[in-house]
């Protein structure tokens, strides 16, 4: 299993979650975060904004669903056909075990 963490624009959060649900990946955890990327934030006038608000969407999926999830996020989180700086990043990490609290069962 894999943990997919996607950092997207906050205004794209609902759209990404909706599309993920439609694609069959309903379960997700969402956190409001601030951060900066490779462009070192945004400089407007003389002021540098480097704590830009973003939404962090976390979901754990089976290995074979990785490509599907990533393509859904890539498609919906983009702000234009070309994409723009600040559209976000996706990180994938390994997950050894998953448990559901209500049933104490292992697995997704």
């Amino acid at each position: 299993m894999l943990l997919i963490r996607a950092i997207v624009r906050p205004e794209k959060k609902d759209e990404v979650l909706y599309e993920l649900s439609t694609a069959g990946f309903h379960a997700a955890t969402v956190i409001d975060v601030v951060g900066r990327g490779k462009q070192k934030g945004i400089k407007i006038g003389g002021i540098v904004y480097d704590e830009i608000p973003k939404a962090l969407i976390m979901l754990v999926v089976r290995d074979e669903d990785k490509e599907d999830v990533i393509s859904v996020i890539l498609r919906t989180a983009k702000t234009s056909a070309k994409g723009a700086y600040g559209d976000g990043k996706i990180f994938v990490s390994a997950v050894d075990e998953v448990y559901t609290v209500s049933t104490a069962a292992a697995g997704l």
């Binding site: 990490s93 997950v95 559901t100 209500s102």
Partner: peptide
């Protein structure tokens, strides 16, 4: 994991949460 599960189980059967273990 056992302790977390024991502390968090309710009678609702759903919505009690998930636990992930990462290397």
């Amino acid at each position: 994991i056992h302790a977390i599960i024991k502390a968090n189980q309710t009678d609702n059967n759903v919505g009690d949460g998930k636990i992930f273990v990462l290397p």
